[in-house]
């Protein structure tokens, strides 16, 4: 499972303007939806926000992974956003979120979705990986960093 193969530089926003969770999710989702990879922008954003209402996807360490399975997307889609100031996300550890991965997939891709989230979750546990994403200067670097850390042998 290669997370980096699903992320394109044009789907990365390195300077989110939004000040709150809902706006940040919309900003990222609409940005990559505008690239034509989402069938129904409004439905996609609504599904992501609906999932967020069940429980925050702010998983701690300054990271959030808003996600949804919906027919508003034809295939697996991934967008990334970064906020320097940080955004209140009701995260498990109470910290502000700086790195946001927005994920969408259709209703059929069960196993792909599961494996993708598991792999992304493993990457995010690595503090060096998170710091590298925070330091990246260009969207292309985000993809390169993910690619680099995917190749690192785990400690356990």
């Amino acid at each position: 499972m290669k997370v980096s193969s699903y992320l394109k530089p044009e789907h990365c926003l390195l300077d989110l303007k939004s000040a709150n969770k809902e706006d940040a999710i919309k900003e990222i989702a609409i940005h990559f939806a505008d690239k034509g990879i989402v069938k129904d922008k409004a439905a996609f954003t609504a599904e992501i926000l609906k999932r967020e209402k069940i429980g925050s996807t702010g998983i701690g360490c300054g990271v959030a992974i808003p996600h949804a399975r919906t027919n508003a997307v034809g295939e697996f889609v991934l967008g990334f956003g970064r906020s320097e100031k940080g955004i209140e996300f009701d995260s498990i550890d109470g910290t502000k979120v700086h790195l946001i991965f927005v994920i969408g997939t259709n209703l059929k891709e069960l196993n792909l979705y599961l494996r993708f989230l598991a792999e992304l979750s493993r990457l995010i546990m690595n503090e060096n990986f998170r710091n590298a994403l925070l330091r990246a200067q260009r969207p292309e670097e985000i993809v390169s960093i993910i690619n680099k850390y995917e190749k690192i042998k785990p400690l356990n």
């Binding site: 429980g55 989230l117 979750s121």
Partner: peptide
Amino acid sequence: SLHDLLKSRI
């Protein structure tokens, strides 16, 4: 994987 994703709060 389901258990891991639940544990990591995703």
